[in-house]
């Protein structure tokens, strides 16, 4: 008992140290990057939130093709609130998240009558309808050209401190703060009984139902939470880039989210983060350096196919697998000798 207690303490301290180290790295990161790389880092941080919120939805076993559109709902809502009603930007982002969540709550009534393929296609249809509405109704959505000159995040102008969020470095820290808090919340949800229930619904919805889990309510809950954070990501995006349009939230973009999640692996919390970080680095640094920009979708497509075929549990499974192989290789000859052929 005693030993376990100190062991737990050691582990917790090690974990905290690692977290401190991680944040120190993240804080130092923008100063090591060029201006254009800083801009990419901002988008990467936003995409981390997008893909992590997506994973929460997949915990219940349903894969949506509408998640990027939901992000767009947050972006459009926040932009319109700021532009047309003069709502201060931090508040408009929050309301954008709420709008995305409300949209999800509404959509859950038709969509959660479906499962599997049908949910996938239903969510695709619902997302396309929303996108077409943005396209069709120029007032207030701006039509195919979308919204431009969206109010930026207000600068902080205090006597001792002045922060201009037009600077990517500063927006990076803002996004990092918002995303860290959001990820913490997502993590807490997953580790709580709510997360256990999500997993239970994924693996055996009938058994869960038979001991009193209202699967419809919990699926909706996952969808609403995931959508809220996707909406927050959308708000962060809109007020950074300053423009949104229907094409930015099309199914092509959704494909990238799928790729990140699948290549990273959705079994663990960090899997999708790994996916989006690794692929963004490959994409922005390696492909750009090689001048293979136009080949980007092709390479993403090939990576997607290869990872579905050969790495069905994602990058996150690579570490443990390599470790096992390494151990086997080191103890190789002896172990092989003992084993009957």
């Amino acid at each position: 008992m005693q030993a376990a207690g100190t062991g737990g303490l050691v582990r917790r301290t090690a974990w905290r140290l690692r977290l401190v180290f991680l944040f120190a790295m993240l804080a130092a990161l923008p100063y090591l990057l060029s201006y254009s790389q800083q801009e990419i880092a901002v988008l990467l941080v936003i995409n981390v939130l997008l893909v992590c919120s997506y994973r929460l939805l997949t915990l219940t076993g349903e894969w949506s093709l509408g998640h990027v559109v939901i992000m767009g709902v947050g972006a459009y809502a926040s932009a319109l609130l700021a532009k047309q009603f003069g709502v201060p930007v931090p508040l408009s982002m929050l309301l954008g998240g709420c709008m995305a969540a409300a949209t999800a709550a509404l959509l859950s009534f038709p969509l959660f009558r479906m499962k599997g393929f049908y949910f996938l296609i239903g969510s695709f249809a619902a997302g396309e309808i929303i996108r077409l509405i943005w396209k069709r109704f120029t007032d207030p959505f701006g039509g195919p050209k979308g919204l431009k000159r969206i109010d930026p995040f207000p600068d902080i102008e205090a006597s001792f401190l002045s922060v201009d969020f037009y600077e990517p470095v500063n927006y990076y820290f803002l996004a990092l703060a918002v995303v860290s808090v959001s990820l913490f919340v997502l993590y807490r949800i997953e580790r709580s009984r709510i997360g256990l229930t999500f997993h239970a619904i994924h693996w055996q919805d009938r058994l869960a139902e038979s001991v009193g889990v209202d699967t419809f309510r919990y699926r909706t809950l996952a969808f609403v939470i995931a959508s809220f954070f996707a909406g927050i990501a959308g708000g962060l995006y809109a007020h950074y880039v300053g423009a949104v349009n229907p094409t930015r939230f099309s199914v092509d973009q959704m494909v990238y989210v799928l790729v990140w999640a699948i290549v990273g692996g959705t079994a663990t919390f960090h899997g999708p983060i790994l996916g989006v970080v690794v692929l963004t680095v490959i994409n922005e640094i390696v492909l750009r350096a090689l001048g293979l920009d136009t080949a980007r979708p092709l390479i993403y497509g090939a990576i997607l196919i290869l990872s579905v075929l050969y790495l069905p549990n994602g990058l996150e499974s690579l570490g443990p697998r390599l470790q096992a192989r390494w151990r086997r290789w080191r103890g190789g000859p002896a172990a092989a000798g003992r084993e009957p052929a």
């Binding site: 693996w203 055996q204 058994l207 889990v213």
Partner: peptide, 17 residues
């Protein structure tokens, strides 16, 4: 019919929903 991916205890914990 069980939550095959869960531990034995977690199965029963879901039962305590």
């Amino acid at each position: 019919t069980l939550f095959q991916e869960f531990s034995v205890l977690d199965n029963v914990r879901v039962g305590r929903h």
